[in-house]
Write a protein that binds this DNA or RNA. Structure first.
Lengths: 137, 137
DNA sequence: TTTGGTGCAAAGGCTTTGCAGAAAG
DNA sequence: CTTTCTGCAAAGCCTTTGCACCAAA
């Protein structure tokens, strides 16, 4: 089935994990690449993609699909939701969790086997709100 | 601000809308292209993309971002959720709607202005369930 | 007519991958 | 040593776009 692979803790993998956990911005792969280059100038974009993929498949980090063209990554694997700013695309955390079992509800309405849900919000971030206000003044 | 544009009802636009509304599969742009070619062999993929974009920006259809690499489209603009099959990627409808105002809940927990939410499920479609069952037998 | 739309093909943006050398275990 | 990982560059996939011609209104 799924190919098992021994994971090695390379320097690259380690700093990728460290940087992602140190940050709460839900960076894209390229964001990470830019951050990482400061610490390890020769790291390659391919390595960043490969590791983010491996780490998220191992459940060590989360890959987010919050809309927009690029995937984002989150070092926080606890269950929580996200907001994406419609203006600048940045992503924030939201702690709301539905107060009842959405999967169970959904299961009543479909022939699919329901595994899990994802709740996401769109809105405008504080910084873009500010810019709007200034712009129209 | 947003550039206003007079929409013309071209033959292409019309059959795109017709086909999308006739189907409940939430097709990708390329799925639509393949379907449309049967009725209009010379239609171009670019035209399909352009029209799906225009129609969804006008609120006449919905562009879905349900995970996976390709966007999907839905001729049904009523508020409803979707399930994506983790096996084959197909997408189905779900009628569950949260019983209380999620936006309001979320707004309490963030500095973002919350506009709306999106609730999506992952699971396995009937056809893939069947295949699994047969495969392991 | 006027102006938006189409087909075609090329360009773009993000991600994946093949390969030879490097490094972890 | 053996096997996985890395950097690099090329390839891939989906989507967007420039352009000259076409067609709604």
């Amino acid at each position: 089935m799924t190919e098992e692979h021994k994971l090695r803790m390379t320097k690259q993998r380690q700093i990728i994990l460290e940087e992602l956990r140190a940050v709460k911005t839900h960076p894209t792969a390229d964001d990470m690449y830019q951050m990482l280059r400061k610490r390890m100038p020769k790291i390659s974009l391919g390595t960043v993609y490969r590791n983010l993929e491996i780490l998220s498949e191992s459940g060590i980090i989360q890959k987010l699909d919050v809309g927009g063209t690029q995937k984002r990554f989150d070092g926080d694997i606890s269950i929580h939701s996200h907001v994406r700013c419609v203006e600048c695309g940045c992503v924030g955390d939201i702690d709301v969790k539905p107060k009842y079992n959405l999967e169970e509800e959904a299961q009543k309405m479909t022939d699919f086997d329901i595994y899990r849900h994802r709740l996401e919000f769109t809105g405008m971030c504080p910084s873009c709100k500010q810019k709007k206000k200034v712009g129209q003044a």
